[in-house]
Design a protein around this nucleic acid. Sequence first.
DNA 1: AAAATTAATGTATAAATATGCAAAATTTCA
DNA 2: TGAAATTTTGCATATTTATACATTAATTTT
Lengths: 150, 150
Amino acid sequence: MARSLRQSKILELISVKEIETQDELAKELKNANFDITQATISRDIKELGLTKILSSSGKYKYAILGNEQQGVSSKYINIFKECVISVKNALNLAVIKTIKGMGGSVASFIDKLNLIDLMGTTFGDDTVLLIFPSTALSSEAVVTLNNILV
Amino acid sequence: MARSLRQSKILELISVKEIETQDELAKELKNANFDITQATISRDIKELGLTKILSSSGKYKYAILGNEQQGVSSKYINIFKECVISVKNALNLAVIKTIKGMGGSVASFIDKLNLIDLMGTTFGDDTVLLIFPSTALSSEAVVTLNNILV
DNA sequence: AAAATTAATGTATAAATATGCAAAATTTCA
DNA sequence: TGAAATTTTGCATATTTATACATTAATTTT
């Protein structure tokens, strides 16, 4: 349980910051209340299929492997399932309630989905807001997301 | 000069074999008459934008970073230019003459191009053969490739 | 619920990689 | 050409990452 929450946080962290080393990631995780050693992070990274790539600044950073051939990995979907409490519709907005502290993780997962018609996302500690151009499109997306949760 | 030939060979090697470490790559390069240390390989890898990914067998291996947004990197094109002596047409075949020992490198570069209508490639030490369904398509491809060389 | 099995993690360290610095090779330019 | 400037490389080593092994935590079974 804590395991996949942690991995979820890792995915969020690397998508938000330029993380250069596993030690750096360990520190960031500590800030997010995941007290873990570099060894475990090495294992998480292998499991999530992350790699170090050359960032634009010429430094190495961790990134999700562009494993686009089979869409979003099932591992990520499992993590998503663990974090999300509910997905509901409110006019042209979809409102996702998450476990405390996982709003950012879920938002970055949603971004990765590249949902068509999605205009933007915002998130708080335990809420993610998806903005659609219309009520119809939003409720459609809510159905899609709920299907993922099954 | 030897530098880009070496880098070209690196690209070939990682696309043909599962190279797990830089030391392993050093050995393979020695076989190909590039006597070089791990340190230099580390630099080459950074320059070529290679990364280690998880292979299907669960081991790490080096691979070209899927940097598909801007097509084939200009760096690779430069290497291609240095290796290729001529590209000529022979009925439904395109015949590429390369610098000695670089046939495989060029062939793997060509594969990466994903040329439409290309049915297959074979290569020897200094020759690459591209097989097309017709003379017209082959000569068209020859023009394309010669344009790259300019 | 206790025992047995399986999974997750830490510790210590081996393995792998990156890099500062000096030397060698290559290129530029007068 | 030869001196100066630039680039490439090796060596040594610091840094980073992976993993064997032991331990703890979690799960399953009886």
